[in-house]
Structures are given as C-alpha cells and as structure tokens.
Design a protein around this nucleic acid. Sequence first.
RNA 1: GGCCCGGUAGUUCAAUGGAUAGAAUAGAAGUUUCCUAAACUUUAGAUACAAGUUCGAUUCUUGUCCGGGCUACCA
Length: 593
Amino acid sequence: MSIVNKIKPLIVKALQDIYGQQFQETDLTINLTKPEFEGDYTLVLFSFVKQLKKSPEQLGNEIGEYLIKNNPDLFSSFNVIKGFLNLVVTNNYWINFLQTSYTNKELGYQPANKHKVIVEYSSPNTNKPLHLGHLRNNFLGWSVAEILKTTGHTVYKTAIMNDRGIHICKSMVTWQLFGEDKTPESEGIKGDHFVGDYYVLFGQEHKKQAELLIADGMSKEEAEKNTPIMLAAQKMLLDWENGDPEVKALWQKMNGWVYEGFNETYKKIGSDFDKNYFESETYLLGKEFVEDGLKKGVFYKKEDGSVWIDLTADGLDEKIVQRKDGTSVYITQDLGLADKKFEEFKYDQSIYVIADEQNYHMKVLKLILQKLGKPYADGIYHLSYGMVELPSGRMKTREGTVVDADDMIEELKKVAREKTEELGKVKDFNPGELNELYDTIALGALKFFLLRVDPKKRMIFNPEESIDFHGFTGPFVQYTHARIKSILRKEQGTRYKVQEGTSGLLLKEKELIVLLEQYPITIEQALQEHNPSLLAIYAFNVAKTFNTFYTEHSVMNAESEEKKQLRLQMSELTANVIASAMGLMGIKVPERM
RNA sequence: GGCCCGGUAGUUCAAUGGAUAGAAUAGAAGUUUCCUAAACUUUAGAUACAAGUUCGAUUCUUGUCCGGGCUACCA
C-alpha cells in the first residue's frame, strides 16, 4: 500500500484520539510537500480550525507530535508552517520500499476481482481509411482496457463495424461508375485507402453534378438531393436492404478490401478485439424494445404511427425510436446492441469509447435503458473524448484535410530513422532490429502524443510541430529507459541488501524514490478517471527526475559500494516503472536507441 | 433560439478549494577528458472580463465576451 493511503487512517485516528472527533479520510487534504519546505507529505490544517476551535499552529504541533510518538518507524520529524503540517517520512521507509520493489515488474497490479468490463472502441466506418481521430480512440480504448486488466478486471474488447448505410453505398456506386474493375492489388494500394479514394471521388462528382443542376435553375438544396450519383447511391441502399445479390456481392467485395487494410493498420498499432460486431447484422435489433417500451408506457405512438419517448422531464427532448414506416433509427439499433452485448458477456460495466459529439446520444441511450428497467443500464459508461483538430479546424474527409493514420506512422518512422542514423548509436543493429526500433519510436511518439492530453479535452494537432522527439514525448521516456538499461547491462553482478538506516538519502535520490513510490496510486487514479494521460505525465516525470538525478550522481562510480547498490536498485526500479507505465499505454520501450 | 463542453506563458498541455499557478516547446545564455548530449543547467514569459461565496478561487456560483459540439423520421 502506498504511503499516502497509510498516512490517512493514522491522521483520522490522531484526530479521534486527541480531539475525540470523528473524521473521514475524504475530509483530509494531503499533498506532496513543496520542494522549498522540509518534508515529504503535507496535511492542510485550515479545514479543521473551525470545527476544533484551535489555531492551525496548535493543531499542527499536536497532530505532528502524536504521529511521531505513535509511528516512529514511519515519521522522523515534522514542522508547521502557516496552516500546513509537513511530515518527514523516515529514510527507512523509503529504503525498505525500494528494496522490496525494485525487482517487482507487477508493481501496482491488483488481484483479480469479479468485475467484467466490456470496452467498445475503434468502431470505424468501412468506407474510408483510419485517420488521427480514430487513432486517439484506438489508443484510448486499448489503454483503458489494459489499465482495467492490471487492476484485476476481466476485460473484453469489442468493436462495432459501421459497414452499411448510405456512406458505404457512395463508395460502391462510384467504384461501379469509375472503377473500371480496378482492385487494390491491380493498383498496388492498401484496400481501405483504395475504397476511401472512391468515397472522396463521390464527393467531387456529386458537387460537379449539383452545380450543373443549379445552372439549370434548381435550388441548391434540391440539386444536392437530386444529382444522378446521389440518386444512384440511394437506390443502391434500397437494393442492399432488399437483399439484391449483385449489390450484396459488390458490398462484400469492397468491405473485404477495407477490412484487409484495417487489419494491417490494427496489427501495426497493436489494436485487438475479442469480438467484432457488424452493423449489417445488428441494425435490425431493437425492434422488440419498441414493443416492450410501448407496453411499459415508456414509449408512445403518434397518430402517424411513429414511436417516441418523452425525455423532457429529464431535461432532454422528445426522441424518435421508430419511424412511421416501421423502420428503426440509430438509437434503436444501439438499444438492441446493448442488450445483445449483455446477453453475450453479462458485463458489470460497458464502456463506450466514442467522441464527445455523441454525448447527447449516449445520455439518451442510457436513460432509455434505465427507464425500460434494464439491469445493465447503470453499468453503461460513455468514455467521451474530444476530437482531434488541426490548427485550421476540424478534419474533413470530403475536403481532404484529414491526417491519415498510415501516412502519419510512416512519416514518424522516417523521422525516427533519420534521427537514429544521424546519432549513430546502434550501428551494430541488423535491418530487422533497426526496423523494429523505428516502429517502437514512431508508435511511441504517436501514442504518447495522443494519450498525454486529458481525453475529455479536444486537442489540436499541428503536423509540423508534433513530430518532436524532445521534451514531453514518448521518445524522451524511451531514451531514458535505454540509458538505464545500458547501465544495468554493465553491472550485472548480484545485488545485495542495503543496510537500513546507515545510508542517508541525498535530495535527488529521495525525490526519485518518493516519485516511484507513487506508481500504484497513479494507476489507481488513471483507473478511476478512465484517464491514461495521468500515466503519460507520470512516466515523463519519472524519466525527467531520473535524468536529473543521474547527471548529478554517478551510479557506477558512487561514493561507496552501498550507494552504488542503492542506485542500481533505483535504476532498476525506474526502468521497470517506466516500462510498465508505458506498457499500459501500449508503448514499447527499447533496450537501446 | 435551447442544451452541453471549453477559454491558463508566443504555441501545445498541467494544477482533489490550499503555500510563490507547474511542464514542454519556441526565445536568450551555458554544460561533452566522466554510466548514451534523443540529455542536463540557468533565464524570461500566462489564469478572457466583471461581480459573488470563502480564512483562501485557475478550480465553486452568476453575468458578459469568444471558441466548439449537439439540437434529422442520417448513422
């Protein structure tokens, strides 16, 4: 257990014993002590002043003395400054922690519990290749799943392939018209890109045709609905729904191309799924929900036959759940899919990794399921993340302003290669090892970049500035790891126990150990908040702190053999923690770079 | 119009109501006989505006201004 979690009950007990008042651990504010003061952890005293009717100084002194008297193994001294009680933790505690942890590669892991969690992420449309926004989604979903696993949950990863609908038909119809039987193979283009090109071409063609109609006197709105190519796409959608064998065959062929491309990209970025759902197979689900809802009086039917739910009492709007022609809408499909997923996985929690533009939709989804009394409704959690934007604004496929995922990775690999060759530190690597290293660095940079920001916030991606391997980046952390490994390779002799107490801790040594000790609570916090950026920030701080420590104090040429042992242990623990934290984000760390 | 987010150094991001608002990058100045300089050190620079609650507000409340999203019998 981490030190903060040990301190809290001790203070609660102190308050009880000294003042006879009961406080909760959540009433306490405990922070890391600011570096300019003496101490490791600080209790903020102001909040007790009113209730205990004593000055902060008096409170601080009384609590401090009590803690030291009763826990001499944990606290060595204290001081009170203004309303802050600064506690100094004993060197023994830190040295003990180090010695019991430095070989533990599962630091922060929690034992298995009974909770089953399903994480739905990625969920692409099968009419165009993945872009930067998808990558944020993929990295986030994968990382959150990994954090859940580490903390003892049973996790299933799923995706829903949006493989049907008018957008798919747009690519199909355009390929039929202009494709000349070309294939990804014949053109040497990755399948998803190949299909995506026809989707873009549709947009161009549609625009051209609309302009002709407008020139003939049609209004803009009318024209956009009635271009020949748009009408063809709509007809194709109907044919698809009616099971037209030719259309279905074309659909299968083109989706097959896309999946081939997706699989290649997924493999490269390390996304994996326990189960894929396909909208083409689930879009008719949810019909029985309409019946059920009507029976329960949750839904109501309008005169024209359409079915609605009134959510105005919950501050939302009226929402349609079935069209007057009896076909279901998006939300109804999602109701059905939620049910299906529960049937198959019996989950306790179902996390949907979906962009924040769907906040309203997800709120409605959960609310409807709750109103229908579904037992799994409360376990639904929308992990809402902000969109990735360019300095010029939102990415738009039709305007060709998207940053393509595959292109981005290749670009980063190129920079990784150039930089590596320039530095010339791994000249003995064979081509296979080099390629692996470039992958590690490029994906490390990309994943770190997209995960280091709070998921809830939208982020701006500047293509020029973002390809940076310095500072708050993945490669910076990876580099620190490689340097530590280099030291450890040179000192493979047996480690031995450092004598407790006889070894004082220098400022920089202690700073690093205190930080390393916080790894488990950092994981816990990332879990609670569904927020991998905490791990990115933490890993960066560990690397930075190690670098500072390492420039000031030699490991191999330490002042004494005991110091050398201590620092070797610190180095090993740092490397393990970095590898672990990065691993939770799906980022590999190299032995050399 | 209604509802929901957001506004912090030039830029990209931090900060459970707590001490002098932290980083990174760009800028300026330095560090290589010594464990990998993809590193390190020093320096300068910010809470949109106005009220309110509080011992204390970047954080909570209200208003104003500025961005973004949602508000389809599209998905």
